[in-house]
Simulated scan of single mutants.
Amino acid sequence: MVLAEIEEDIQAIEQDEAIYQEINFNSRANAIDFIDFHIIDRIDGLLQNSAYQKELTILQQRAEKVKTDLEKIDNNLFKRLRENIRTGTYKESSFLKTLDEYFDQDDNPTDNIGYDNLDNFMNGLLSDQAIPEPIMEREQEMVFYQKTPARIILEIAELANLGSEDVFFDLGSGLGQVPILVNLISGTAAKGVEYEPAYCNYAKTCASQLNLHLVEFINIDARLADYSQGTVFFLYTPFGGKILQTVLEILQKESLKRTIRIFTYGPCSETLAQQNWLNCVHGAVNDPYKLCAFRSLSF
């Protein structure tokens, strides 16, 4: 009975013509997850103690082939889209239109927690490099790197309504996804400030491969960076405590020269809400899974 169920699951994916069409990335991603967690993992468990080793091995090989075939479709898709980015085919709104072709808003609700298929898409699209291991030891108040959910980056780009006069800074930019996507969506100059050199080099290579001249990554402690050009800033809680407060004091000095906007995600939103030079204009600061936006006050 179990063998028949597994074979039926594999056959259903094999015969689903829609997921083999390049445009149906969402359905294909769901199918790959199903193969991984409901077929291959199930077979692995059964192989530990089963009289049907041969039959299960055949099913496992069959499932792995289906998964490989589906992943090849994605790899070819990403290769083509990266070439389009490199050659300047996608400019601002046209990049968003391309995303809309692959993602329905109902498939990626903005009120969920964690990552979704849009993140899988961005991970494959922006680079085919292997993710490097960090080589620097973090200070105690520095937070370990986590990617900003792609839906949050799209929300930033929409709310910020960036123009050619803006310069966007991502503090703790990691592998560079936020500045790259902000630039692709808005055309605005975007800079990433990153303490970890391995991550910064990865991001630089990614931007170079995509031929994004207005995207820059700076390997420096955020407390030492030059923010004189910045008009819009983003922090996905890259640090806390005294480091965060020092950086905020630096940004406050910048706000005396011009109005600045700061977007936050994660626990640091509550700290920014306590700053008397900032006004929260969007979001719930006590919810770490909601994007918040702040604007500097005029003095």
Rank of each mutant, 00 (worst) to 15 (best):
V281W: 11
I218A: 07
M122G: 02
N161R: 08
N219F: 10
L162V: 04
E64C: 08
N123P: 04
F103Y: 09
F121W: 04
E101P: 01
S298F: 08
E14W: 05
F169Q: 00
G241S: 04
N30S: 14
Y265M: 12
R138C: 00
D128I: 02
I152E: 08
V2A: 07
F294W: 10
G174K: 06
E101I: 08
A160G: 01
L96F: 11
K97C: 01
I156C: 10
T89F: 14
R295S: 15
E17C: 00
G163M: 03
I180M: 13
N117C: 12
K253F: 06
L59Y: 11
G241C: 03
Q177N: 13
I262N: 06
L181I: 12
K72C: 11
L81I: 12
I85W: 02
I262M: 08
R62C: 07
G114M: 05
D116K: 06
A18S: 15
D69P: 03
E7S: 08
Q140F: 11
E139W: 02
N120I: 11
R82P: 00
S127K: 02
N183V: 05
R80G: 08
K65L: 15
Q275W: 06
G172E: 05
E137N: 13
L46Q: 04
R28W: 07
R258E: 05
V178C: 04
S186T: 14
D36S: 09
D119A: 08
L256P: 00
D106W: 03
I58W: 08
A273N: 13
V167I: 07
L154P: 06
N117K: 15
G266S: 09
L256D: 13
V232L: 02
Y90C: 07
L181R: 00
D119K: 13
A157R: 05
